[in-house]
Design a protein around this nucleic acid. Sequence first.
DNA 1: GTCTATACTACGATAGAC
DNA 2: GTCTATCGTAGTATAGAC
Lengths: 161, 161
Amino acid sequence: MRDIAGDVGMLAGSMYYHFSSKEELLVAVHAEGVRHFERAVEHALAGQEDPWQRLQAAASAHLETLLGEGDYTQVVIAELPRDNPPLRARLIQLRDAYEALFRRLIGALDLAPECDAGLVRLMLFGALNTSPTWYRPGRHTPAELGAAFVRLLKQGVDHHP
Amino acid sequence: MRDIAGDVGMLAGSMYYHFSSKEELLVAVHAEGVRHFERAVEHALAGQEDPWQRLQAAASAHLETLLGEGDYTQVVIAELPRDNPPLRARLIQLRDAYEALFRRLIGALDLAPECDAGLVRLMLFGALNTSPTWYRPGRHTPAELGAAFVRLLKQGVDHHP
DNA sequence: GTCTATACTACGATAGAC
DNA sequence: GTCTATCGTAGTATAGAC
């Protein structure tokens, strides 16, 4: 709290005028981060019609937001607190509203009948949201990676001669 | 440190006889966790010949270890410390040795020529390692989920009539 | 709306007795 | 090898002046 206050030119005590606790501040930052993702994905979807193109656009926008310069985005995929279940529940609720957007995008696809749409979503989110641990700028852009993951998921990686 | 010491019937100070700092203890626990994964995967691979079967067996063993009862495994996929680069580097080094095992398994596959083996590995690990955030016992076993993710990755999810 | 000052608790770590 | 006792620092939060 002292560090955060210092970064905005305050002392720690002054922040309690704006937020009643550290947890309330975390929830507020988290909510702002979710809004960043929502805005980016909705903008990327505008005008896209093909379901697979829409999922690709959304995945690319998600990664650009997650790996970009913004200060509010990495917190959205951070590990959830284990020691405070009510707080944990509030953060999960914020994320779920955003993930529902991807649920709809995947629901619009023509999936092979043996595929579980839930697992498809979890696999895509898993790939996208672990990218901060390995991504280094240079080789690929975030948008390219998002598109590449959707392509792998769509077509599969096995060789069909 | 006090909590951990308490769980083994010691006081905090006594632990510094065994580990010179909190960081050294973390590294030791991390290394033990990696050994758990390695043992489980090597055991699952014994006798498997087909490259896709081998990857599936490894993914299932990885998830059984990660989602099982063990006390040393979740720490291996925990978020890395941002404020201590030397410690961070040591933990990454431990994980990398284990991930090399999967690099070899994926290298043995006959992938479609347009597929990047590195992205395939990252996608699979992303799906597997985010499972603690959503997994609930009951619907699927960890082994089933590991096999399902490998199948999705192999065959793709698009419908081919 | 931000300050000063401070309360209370917790933390990692050490020294020296046993 | 574990204890007692403690050091110094940092954490969240509050009260009241300005």
